[in-house]
């Protein structure tokens, strides 16, 4: 469960988040849409501690990551975020490590798994994203779609309860988005809470339980996909969907 109350965040005098209130239930698949610059990435990044909010409260599974804009010690923050993973627009694979190294480094560093367990899990997850044959490949030899699938498998190695996706297909050639979306779709229904910032409206409509339209740093619309896409009431949302 993710709960945010009145999130505020500015970069200098650019007031980006202006009171984001959101409550995401365990296992929900939430798509966040909205115009560029509306604060979608900033919001997502603040959930996992990559941005520090100036005001408001963030609770993950009931534990406070920030309370009224104040953060606990770094160790506590890491503890609160341990059940979350994130997939980035630009993959952020570790270029000096093989695919196997990318997957196993984190669980080994955290002593979460032994070497053998990590290797077995790595093989399982690569099979799941359809990249078993790439286990010893270096990231530089992979296509964008393959990189992103590796990045998803890497995040899954830590058994996250919550996975955040920030435009996971925006950096891909159009013909490669399908393979990544298929892997993401395969994850729905596994009980993992997924929060997905995306411009893939067809995908959002198909897999999301709930669609959030962010605009001007607030949640402007929050509803079921059919409400948001088929019968939008909000004028800004209408304009946004028309412009696609």
């Amino acid at each position: 469960m993710i709960q945010t109350i009145g999130l505020q965040k500015s970069f200098g005098d650019n007031h980006v988040l202006r009171g984001v209130d959101l409550h995401i239930e365990r296992g929900q698949i939430v798509a966040i849409i909205g115009p560029s610059g509306s604060g979608k990435s900033t919001f997502l990044r603040s959930l996992i501690g990559l941005e520090r909010i100036d005001g408001g409260t963030i609770r993950i599974e009931g534990e406070a990551l920030a309370e009224d804009g104040r953060y606990p010690k770094e160790r506590v923050c890491r503890q609160v975020c341990r059940g979350m993973g994130m997939v980035f627009q630009h993959f952020n694979l570790f270029p000096h490590m093989s695919v196997r190294g990318n997957l196993t480094a984190a669980p080994l560093a955290a002593k979460k798994l032994t070497k053998d367990e990590a290797d077995a899990k790595c093989a399982d997850l690569l099979a799941r994203v359809g990249l078993s044959d790439k286990i010893d490949a270096m990231p530089s030899s992979l296509s964008g779609g393959q990189k992103q699938r590796v990045a998803i498998a890497r995040a899954l190695m830590m058994d996250p309860d919550i996975l955040l996706f920030d435009e996971p297909t925006s950096a891909l050639d159009p013909e490669l988005t399908g393979e990544v979306l298929a892997v993401m779709k395969d994850l729905t229904g596994t009980g993992i809470t997924m929060v997905i910032v995306t411009h893939e409206m067809a995908f959002a409509r198909e897999v999301a339980d709930r669609v959030i339209f962010m605009d001007g740093g607030v949640v402007a619309v929050d509803g079921r996909p059919e409400e948001v896409f088929d019968d939008p009431k909000n004028e800004r949302l209408k304009a946004f969907l028309r412009a696609l």
Binding site: R78, C81, F88, N92, A105, A106, A109
Partner: peptide
């Protein structure tokens, strides 16, 4: 950022 979200200190 990738290291941080994967729990590396």
């Amino acid at each position: 950022e990738a290291a941080k979200v994967l729990g590396f200190g």
